[in-house]
Nucleic acid binder design. Structure first.
Ligand SMILES: [Mn+2]
Ligand SMILES: [Mn+2]
Ligand SMILES: [Zn+2]
Ligand SMILES: [Zn+2]
Lengths: 151, 151
DNA sequence: ATTAATCATGCAAATGAGTTTCAATAGTGA
DNA sequence: TCACTATTGAAACTCATTTGCATGATTAAT
């Protein structure tokens, strides 16, 4: 909870610096995001926040996500369904593997692949600004005695 | 042109096998895609095809893209703006680098990065089914004599 | 604390890509 | 050529996201 409060304080000073205001709604949404350990979409964030403040509107969630993103407080991802999903940005960079059967999102990071991407861009004459890397995979069965399973 | 016709013939037999029909519209859209060397969206395909058949409708383009995709005849990509873009699928796998200034899409392929993705998935206990890799970069200036440029 | 300035909010309406409904049309195989 | 049914064009619809507008809340200065 203290960690969450620290994040909110940091964000508040960022806002001030941009001539923007810290509102109850923004505080609430920020708290929801800080406590989330998944990648909720706007509706999901709205649902969680709405439980604490039934006057909140979905428009405000969308607007807040834009502010948070422009301040670098969150990251937005759009996986295959195209819907924007969000997560707080105070963690180090990582990419995502999506379980194609369950939809579960697994985070991973690999210095090797980060470096390789930079090198590929460089070979094409570009400086890498950002990237999007999503792996879609299916859970491997642990190896079985007796070869491939029937059916 | 012969190459395009071959593609169309192949697709027609795929359709037949699925109990589907080869129509003028599908033939036309397929031709547009075969002749494209970029990554047009539905509206772009519609515009090009409409020039040859002013009775064509945008709905048909969308419907046709679904059929083509389900038959594996095209690939769909959604870059940062979320709009679906298409390209014919009879080329080997590649990924894309997008010039953040011009929007230009550059194709590349790297066995190293393909292999690395497979390995990362495997380490997480997954078998890689597919992936999405997009690099966003800015054109590098060729090295200049005299150090960094003014301004 | 009170106020003035203006930023932010809630609601409803609008937007835009993509999908679907339906009556009419056009491939298909016989 | 015929009967069957997949496909089409047009319009209506879906759904995530954005926007206009009147009202309410936050801020820094009294
Ligand atoms: Mn994440
Ligand atoms: Mn391509
Ligand atoms: Zn990464
Ligand atoms: Zn690839």
């Amino acid at each position: 909870m203290t960690e969450t409060d620290r994040r909110i304080a940091v964000f508040e000073s960022q806002l001030k610096g941009a001539g923007l205001r810290m509102t109850q709604q923004r505080r609430l949404i920020l708290r929801v995001l800080a406590e989330a350990d998944d990648h909720p979409d706007a509706k999901g964030i709205f649902t969680r926040a709405f439980a604490h403040d039934p006057t909140l509107s979905l428009s405000t969630v969308y607007r807040t996500m834009k502010v948070l993103e422009s301040q670098g407080a969150i990251e937005r991802h759009a996986f295959e369904d195209g819907i924007s999903r969000y997560e707080h940005a105070d963690q180090e960079h990582h990419d995502h593997l999506i379980d194609v059967d369950s939809g579960e999102v697994i985070e991973f990071s690999s210095d090797a692949i980060e470096e390789l991407q930079r090198r590929i861009a460089a070979e094409l004459g570009y400086e890498l600004v950002r990237h999007r890397l999503e792996l879609y995979g299916r859970k491997k069965q642990p190896a079985r005695r007796g070869g491939r399973k029937a059916s």
